[in-house]
Simulated scan of single mutants.
Amino acid sequence: MFEITWDSFVRIVTVGTLAYIGLILFLRISGKRTLSKLNAFDLVVTVALGSTLSTVLLDSSLTLFEGLTAFALLLVLQYLISFGSIHWGWFNKLIKSEPKLLYLNGEFLRSAMKKERMTEIEILQAIRSSGSGSTSEATAVVLETDGSLSVISSEPKDAMQNVKTQK
């Protein structure tokens, strides 16, 4: 269980280093979008790349070339999906979810929360994390397509009074 042969050690170090360099090169070529977390498909690619790297490192039956081919395939598929979502509206709607409004002007939108499986506590946590001290400082909370919660804060009352005074 704790044994490692010199050959397997050398293989892991050599293949691991080369696979890592190959992955970095592929990621640089494919662009920033590949590792973004804009939607579920982006997350899947990120996890799959890590899983593939792990498999290449530890499975001696796989060659370095097979691992690099798997990296390339994942990146090409990611490119095709993002290309399709940009060029065809129907495809974009098929693969991506829409942002959902969960809180607006002091009211929790219970039906949207239930549909998205979000609790009041999670929304309150997002409001606090945004720097707002209370729900009165937040105008809206939106569940974004990547699963994050965006808090839209209301303007400070002093600033609103200054705008009214200047008119």
Rank of each mutant, 00 (worst) to 15 (best):
V76N: 04
V13S: 13
T14A: 15
L35Q: 06
L35V: 15
F65M: 07
L57V: 12
I12W: 13
L38G: 08
D59H: 01
A72K: 02
T14C: 13
R33A: 12
L38C: 06
G67Q: 06
L27Q: 08
G67W: 11
V56Q: 05
T17C: 14
V76K: 03
G50K: 01
L73T: 12
L38Y: 05
L23W: 05
A19V: 09
V44S: 11
S51C: 10
I81N: 06
I81D: 04
L53A: 15
I12C: 07
A48D: 10
L43M: 13
G50L: 11
D42K: 03
A19T: 11
F65A: 13
T55E: 12
V56G: 10
S30I: 08
W88M: 07
K37A: 15
I21P: 06
R33V: 11
L53Y: 13
V56M: 07
R33G: 15
A72R: 02
T52A: 15
F26T: 07
R33W: 06
L25Y: 02
T34L: 11
S36C: 05
V47A: 09
K37L: 14
F65I: 09
L25M: 10
I12G: 05
V13W: 12
V15L: 10
L18H: 11
T34Q: 02
R33Q: 09
N39H: 14
L35E: 08
Y79Q: 04
I81C: 01
L62V: 03
R28Y: 13
V45C: 01
A70T: 08
T34W: 02
E66C: 04
T34I: 13
L49K: 11
W88K: 01
L64D: 04
L43W: 09
H87C: 06
S82H: 05
V47M: 14
L49F: 06
S85T: 14
S36F: 03
T14Q: 13
S60W: 02
R28P: 00
V56R: 11
T63L: 08
S30C: 09
Q78T: 00
L75G: 00
L43D: 08
L80P: 03
L38Q: 15
L25R: 00
L75H: 04
S36T: 13
R28C: 08
T46G: 14
T69W: 00
D59M: 07
I86K: 14
F71M: 07
V56D: 03
I21F: 14
H87Y: 13
G16P: 15
F65C: 05
G89N: 09
V13C: 10
I24T: 08
Y79A: 00
